[in-house]
Design a protein around this nucleic acid. Sequence first.
DNA 1: ATTCTCACA
DNA 2: TGTGAGTA
Length: 147
Amino acid sequence: MKIENRKALYPIGIVAELLGIHPRTLRIYEQEGLVKPARRGGKRFYSNNDLQWLRCLRRLLTEDGLNIAGVKKLLTIAPCWEIRNCDQEIRKKCPAILNFPVPCWDLVPRACQEKGQVCSECEVYLRKKNNVMMHIGCRDLDEEPEG
DNA sequence: ATTCTCACA
DNA sequence: TGTGAGTA
């Protein structure tokens, strides 16, 4: 996972304009625990990963017919480690598993390693696979999700 | 200028 | 979900 994607760069106003989401709405998403922008001096700052997740969340909310409660439930039902086939050694140390039910995007990627790269269980996005929403983990934003 | 929280339509 | 008030 590239650290650039984890850097909290954008204030809420920029994010709002970039994604076409009202600042008030972004704050509500945070309040609901669906995103966790960094805080510096009381101000919110979003990373590229946050933006990517926000785009995905937006689609769930505006196109896929889910509401916030639905998304939260979905994430509870389909935690990333249920989908990914991490081996036992990786699972033992995966922060997303150890801290369940803390949302994985609340976690910092360090313990969970795979093939020498930092596993991004904590920077998880949803996508459709076999018509089921699931997490995407352990890949960079510019990587193409595996089929 | 921008964001924050809170109250309210 | 969006707006306005009053701050910091």
